[in-house]
């Protein structure tokens, strides 16, 4: 049997909101260590990787070595509309069961339950290599969200140029060119901090459609971390409640190549 209780149900709601427009069906891989999910979007341009450690849950039980729960994202986000912001969530599945039961509770006054039919999803075995990035940028999620949204008004692609001292986001579109520079700002109050760590400068182009999709996960944490390398995918990482010990939602994106 699998059973997990999360007092802050909105965390799961935010995770699914961050994934739903990229992937239609995903497997929840449950083990005694927590929950993992890995999926590529249908065009194989980006990859989503979720890790929820048992620390994020108030209760966590998985009797088997592993269980694979196939979920349709549209149905799951529909179900999570039932979940109020202060509700706790309990997920429960029998070992050979064909459903995953969600219970949303606010105190004892209101209890909602939905049994979701599980799917059998063919999933490819994908691996994420341990990667050291030439450039790491930690910036407020609100800033990331705003930059991606504003830049999308001018073009389809955004260049991220990361150098010692700061990072420049720029767009070159039909109506003209624009750029936003964020200075390395380690000594300001936490919510405004921008940390740019550079071993070697990197400049790469990315599709704003995907960067904007990743921004939907912004409510999960205060800061987002970008990892850039000239020869590996961009990593966009949201730690759950800014605590890596609880887990993370990561997105990987292939750069655009000049033809």
């Amino acid at each position: 049997m699998f059973e997990a209780v999360l007092s802050n149900g909105s965390t799961l709601k935010k995770i699914f909101e961050g994934i739903k427009d990229l992937c239609t069906d995903v497997n929840f891989d449950v083990s005694s260590e927590g929950i993992k999910l890995q999926a590529m979007d249908s065009s194989h341009v980006s990859l989503v990787s979720l890790e929820l450690h048992t620390d994020v849950f108030e209760q966590f039980r998985c009797d088997r070595d592993s269980m694979t729960l196939g979920l349709n994202m549209k149905s799951v986000t529909q179900i999570f509309k039932i979940c109020g912001n202060d509700d706790s969530v309990t997920m429960r599945a029998e070992d050979e069961g064909e459903t995953l039961e969600f219970t949303f509770e606010k105190g004892e006054d209101r209890v909602s339950t939905f049994e979701l039919k599980l799917m059998d999803i063919d999933s490819e075995h994908l691996g994420i290599p341990d990667t050291e990035y030439q450039c790491n940028v930690k910036l407020p999620c609100s800033e990331y969200q705003r930059i991606c949204r504003d830049m999308a008004g001018f073009g389809d692609n955004m260049t991220i140029d990361c150098q010692k001292g700061g990072v420049t986001f720029s767009v070159d579109g039909e109506v003209g060119k624009g750029k936003i520079f964020l200075k390395h700002q380690p000594n300001v109050e936490e919510k405004h901090k921008v940390i740019v760590t550079v071993k070697e400068g990197v400049e790469l182009d990315f599709a704003l459609r995907y960067l904007n999709n990743f921004a939907k996960a912004a409510p999960l944490s205060d800061h987002v971390q970008l990892g850039l390398n000239s020869d590996t995918p961009l990593s966009v990482r949201f730690d759950i409640e800014d605590k890596a010990t609880l887990g993370s939602l990561k997105f990987f994106l292939a750069p655009k190549i000049k033809e």
Partner: peptide, 14 residues
């Protein structure tokens, strides 16, 4: 023009 590269081979090989 810009071409969108693909991640499939990268993660498949890992």
């Amino acid at each position: 023009g810009m071409k969108q590269s693909n991640l499939y081979a990268f993660f498949k090989a890992a």
